[in-house]
Simulated scan of single mutants.
Amino acid sequence: MDPYTPLFDRVLLTNDDGISAPGLAALEAIATKLAREVWVVAPAHDQSGVSHAISIHHPLRVETLGERRFAVQGTPGDCVVLALQHLMPHKPTLILSGVNRGANLGVETAFSGTVGAAMAGMLLGVPSIALSQAFTKGQPVKWATVEALGVDVLARVAQADWAAGSCLNINFPDVEPAACKGTQYTSQGTGRLNGIQVTGQQDPRNVEYFWLNMSRTESFDEEGTETHGVFNGYVTVTPLTFERTAQAVLDCLK
């Protein structure tokens, strides 16, 4: 397939790192090769960690930055809702969320605003995909990897019948494009998140305040999970749903 042949009439882009994030610029470069019309509705500021949140206790303010480009004083979920229900005259064919700075793996996806935006799109009936680029702390993020591989990966998954009951979580490995080993279709697994730490400090008026910080293990999941795939040089594609029932526990309770 010619990668420059538009597959989609209209694509909505959002993220959780904010409208000025380099990952969103990388996603725009990908989307313009796949869609006839690209819309950007993204948070005005970094909203990492807000998960699926939508704002119901304060008004949302929208700034028009250009044709089909808007910054929202709200969450990624707010952006999706505003785009679909108010800003766009016609619903998009596809929603792309990202590209997140850092992988979204395992249970950490429950906190991810990138994944949350995709799940908001799924809730509103639009095929939705979250994209993330893994990186190593202290080293530059390899945005060139997702830009080089993203068009082909999205073109291939677009042909599969996954959108009726799921969204996709795609992670790109922290390797140069030529070193990527291919694409794996994976389960979520546990991931690397193993705790959330609290650090207390005092402001100049001696009033205590707190920072929350996620901690991660160096161990990796078993083969077939997205964590194992990403850290072995593969692009991973994981279908996610809202269904979280622990069936074995339910059976025990019954």
Rank of each mutant, 00 (worst) to 15 (best):
D152C: 12
D203Q: 10
D203M: 07
S215D: 13
S215V: 13
V230Y: 11
F111E: 05
K91L: 01
Y234N: 08
S128L: 07
S215G: 12
V41R: 14
L250R: 14
L124Q: 15
L250A: 13
W39S: 12
A148S: 15
I19T: 06
T75D: 02
Q184D: 02
L13P: 11
V40G: 11
R61M: 05
R68E: 03
H90W: 04
N171T: 11
V126P: 01
L13H: 02
A246I: 08
A248Y: 07
L253T: 08
Q247R: 10
N171R: 00
D2M: 05
S20W: 08
M88V: 02
V157G: 01
R192H: 12
V198R: 15
E63I: 06
K33A: 10
R192Y: 00
P22A: 06
E218F: 09
S166W: 01
F172I: 08
Q139A: 07
G191Y: 00
V249P: 11
A25H: 12
L250D: 10
L12V: 02
A158I: 01
A118D: 01
T186R: 00
I30R: 09
S112H: 11
Q47M: 13
W143P: 15
Q202A: 13
W162D: 00
E222M: 14
E63M: 05
T183C: 04
A42T: 03
T136Q: 15
V72I: 05
A118T: 01
Q197K: 14
F70D: 02
A26S: 15
I196M: 14
E223G: 13
A31K: 12
Q73A: 06
V72G: 03
V80T: 00
A179Q: 11
N232G: 09
L34M: 12
G195E: 07
V146R: 14
V198T: 14
E63F: 06
T236G: 05
R244L: 06
R61I: 03
G150S: 13
I129V: 15
T75H: 08
A103L: 04
D46G: 09
P59C: 07
G233H: 05
K142Y: 13
F231V: 03
G113K: 01
T114F: 07
K142A: 14
S166C: 07
L193K: 10
A25D: 10
L24H: 13
K33H: 14
L24T: 09
S51L: 00
V157R: 04
S55Y: 03
I170L: 04
T217Y: 04
A117K: 08
I170K: 01
T217S: 15
T32Y: 06
G200S: 15
A83E: 12
G195C: 05
G18H: 09
G66N: 11
V11M: 11
M214L: 10
A110T: 12
W143L: 15
Q197I: 10
A25Q: 12
V40A: 12
L65M: 07
V81F: 10
H228Y: 12
Q73T: 03
L123Q: 12
L87H: 04
F220H: 15
